[in-house]
């Protein structure tokens, strides 16, 4: 259902579903992973049914997220190719942070920051998946030196990824009218004009 027939479709239901699968698995992975990473977060293990269940479930959720992430990458890579204007936008990120993005270069479907985030998250996943498999002692037995490297890579990358997702979620909250794109897939014309003018012009071209 469209709130207003003039609203613009930004995501199909399928795209939103994949994103939610990734997002929910990410939250579960972050909490179960942090529980094993630092005793301060060990209480998170209660949400998963105790320490042993946390240890059992984390890698399984990891596989779910990895698969959903691959689907997202296939669907979204073409919108995230970095162009010159994206680097210009990133060079002037200070203005965005200041809240005055209307003076910045017009942006397509995604701005330079969003595209950069996409690639950084992809790198994180490319580090997290193999290192997670190496850590998975229930099914694998890699040389101990590999496991030690994997532990460092997996935990450090996880922290970087958690920080990136904090920024991602905050940006969505901060820019009002954005979250609805993940609920029901549409945004207002005014929103599109202000934040993604090039995209607005593309989708409203008669």
């Amino acid at each position: 259902m469209r709130r207003d027939p003039r609203d613009l479709v930004r995501y199909t239901a399928g795209q939103r579903a994949v994103h939610w699968i990734v997002g929910i698995s990410f939250i579960l992975l972050g909490m179960s992973g942090l529980a094993l990473f630092h005793p301060a977060f060990y209480p998170f293990s209660l949400l998963f049914g105790g320490g042993a269940w946390t240890r059992i479930l984390h890698p399984i959720i990891g596989v779910v997220m990895a698969l959903a992430f691959v689907v997202m990458v296939i669907r979204f890579t073409r919108y995230n190719l970095m162009r010159r204007v994206d680097w210009q936008w990133i060079g002037r990120i200070g203005e965005m942070v200041n809240g005055s993005d209307e003076t910045m270069p017009a942006q397509g479907k995604y701005n330079g920051g969003q595209k950069l985030l996409f690639w950084l998250l992809l790198i994180c996943m490319l580090l997290l998946i193999p290192s997670g498999v190496v850590l998975w002692r229930a099914y694998f037995d890699f040389p101990v030196e590999w496991v030690r490297w994997a532990a460092v890579v997996h935990s450090a990358t996880a922290v970087v990824m958690i920080c990136l997702i904090f920024v991602h979620v905050y940006a969505a909250i901060w820019v009002t009218g954005t979250i609805r794109a993940m609920w029901y897939g549409t945004v207002t014309r005014a929103w599109a004009k202000q934040h993604h003018r090039t995209w607005y012009e593309e989708v409203t071209k008669p």
Binding site: V97, G99, D101, Y170, W174, V175, T176, A190
Partner: peptide, 11 residues
């Protein structure tokens, strides 16, 4: 950031 800049709403 939110507390100092407020939301980034459509102008």
């Amino acid at each position: 950031h939110y507390v100092t800049k407020g939301p980034n709403a459509v102008s």
